[in-house]
């Protein structure tokens, strides 16, 4: 297991950032809820050729066949650029976040669920080009997401297709940033909102109540480079299924009593 972790960590470090970007997809979350009262929380780290990100997810089924979901996504990349002014080199960074909520309806089967989620969220991407040159973009995302999950005692598999409407409603841009990036941002301003699908999923090993999973999301059709979008993310996640956790605790407390 250890070599695998080391290799993966190495990959993530190599993958982390070398250009600015204005959108990065979070993981397509697939809640493993099959009945009222089920819930889960997930934390994941992900990397791509340009980023190192954090993904946090919580879902809960308050009613039969109904789920609410909360996601928080934090994007980050940084690299050092030689100073074109001939002075010392300087750090360029990308930082961003997205908070979103969704509601969903699911149909449980013996092997898992089929579900449909509708969500909305907003966030910000802030690219710092060094020497106080900053491009700050606000973003809003609406999505509709059918998902399928399969689970048994030791295995989890979830896939989803997220139909995204991505809007950039606002921006605060220092015109001194690279002219090519100004052109890209002006393109975002003009052509936003964008509609596109993202495909994603996770596959995990389950040790009650924990799941260790590998996650992947890919922006399916956008020509990402044209808009400085980060087109994919790959990473590892750790999930806790709340109903199992509480069941275990209850069982322990009964034993203690």
């Amino acid at each position: 297991m250890r070599p695998f972790i080391l290799i993966f960590a190495g990959f993530l470090l190599l993958a982390a950032g070398c250009v600015q970007y204005h959108y990065s997809p979070n993981f397509v979350q697939t809640p493993y809820v099959v009945k009222k009262g089920d819930g889960m929380v997930t934390a994941a780290i992900s990397g791509s050729p340009v980023a190192l990100n954090g993904d946090f997810h919580a879902s809960y089924s308050p009613i039969k066949y109904g789920t609410v979901m909360l996601n928080y996504f934090q994007a980050h990349s940084s690299f050092t650029e030689n100073n074109f002014l001939g002075g010392p080199s300087y750090l360029q960074t990308t930082k961003g976040y997205l908070v979103e909520g969704a509601v969903g309806a699911y149909k449980p089967f013996s092997f898992g669920t089929a579900a449909l989620y509708v969500g909305w969220g907003q966030g910000q991407m802030r690219n710092d080009y060094g020497i106080n040159r900053i491009a700050d973009l606000g973003l809003q995302r609406f999505f509709v997401q059918p998902t399928f999950t399969y689970k048994n005692d030791w295995f989890r598999l979830g896939i989803g297709l997220r139909f995204v409407r991505l809007n950039f409603p606002s921006g605060n841009i220092d015109y001194r940033i690279e002219p090519a990036d100004v052109v890209i941002i002006q393109r975002l301003e003009k052509e936003s909102p964008f509609w596109f699908p993202e495909m994603g999923g996770n596959i995990g090993i389950h040790f009650k109540p924990v799941t260790i999973s590998a996650n992947l999301v890919i922006m399916a059709t956008r020509p990402a480079a044209e808009y400085s979008f980060d087109a994919s993310n790959i990473g590892v996640g750790l999930s806790l299924e709340l109903q199992e956790l509480f069941k275990k605790r209850n069982r322990n407390s009964v034993i203690e009593e």
């Binding site: 909305w120 609406f142 409603p169 921006g171 605060n172 841009i173």
Partner: peptide, 23 residues
């Protein structure tokens, strides 16, 4: 009501566009 709220957000999002370029 939640779906309605989302639809409202969507409409609001479509109306706003506020880009400020400064030098």
């Amino acid at each position: 009501p939640v779906f309605t709220l989302f639809a409202l957000f969507l409409l609001l999002g479509a109306c706003k566009s506020d880009f400020n370029y400064y030098y």
